[in-house]
Amino acid sequence: MRSRVWWPTTAVVLGLLAAGCGDGDGGKASDKDAAAGASVSGSGYPVGVTDCMGAKTTFAAAPKKIVTSNAAGLELLLRLGAGDKVVGTGFPPGKGTLPAPLDAQAQQVKVLGKTVIPKEKLLGSGADLYIDTFASMGGMGGGGMGDAPTDAEFKAAGIKHIYLKSTACASGRKSPVTDLSAVEDDITSLGAVTGTSAKAKELVSGMKKTVDGVRAAVGATAPASRPTYFFFDYDAGTKQPSVVCNRQVAHAVITLAGARNAFADCDGDFKQVGWEDVIAKNPDWIQLGVRDRGSEAANTAAFDEAQKWLEDNPATKGLKAVKEGHFVRIGSERTTIAGVANADTVREIAKTLHPGKVG
Rank of each mutant, 00 (worst) to 15 (best):
M145H: 07
A192D: 12
R173S: 08
G195Q: 13
G172V: 01
A200S: 11
V193R: 00
I159R: 06
K160L: 03
I162V: 14
G191T: 01
P149Y: 09
P176F: 06
G172N: 09
F154H: 03
S171W: 08
Y163T: 14
S197T: 12
D185R: 15
G146A: 05
G144K: 03
G191W: 00
A152D: 14
A200N: 04
L164N: 09
D186T: 03
T150C: 05
A152F: 09
K174D: 11
T194E: 13
G146Y: 10
V177L: 05
T194K: 12
T194R: 09
A182K: 03
A182D: 12
S189T: 14
T188H: 14
G144L: 06
C169W: 01
L180W: 03
H161M: 05
K201P: 04
F154M: 13
T196Q: 15
E202T: 13
S166H: 04
L164E: 11
I162S: 02
I159K: 05
G172Q: 12
L190V: 13
V177H: 00
V177D: 04
V177R: 02
E153Q: 15
K199Y: 07
M145T: 09
D179N: 14
S189N: 14
T196R: 15
S205E: 14
A148I: 01
V204A: 05
S175V: 09
I187T: 06
A192N: 11
I187P: 05
A168D: 15
I159T: 07
V193D: 00
A192H: 12
V183N: 10
K155A: 15
C169S: 05
T167G: 03
K174A: 11
A148W: 09
K160G: 04
A152E: 15
I187C: 04
K165M: 10
T150S: 15
A170M: 10
K155N: 13
K165C: 02
P176M: 01
K199N: 05
T150R: 06
T167D: 15
G195M: 13
S197P: 01
S189D: 11
S171G: 11
S175Q: 11
T150K: 09
E153W: 09
A170I: 02
A198F: 01
G191A: 01
K165N: 08
C169H: 02
D151Q: 13
K201Q: 15
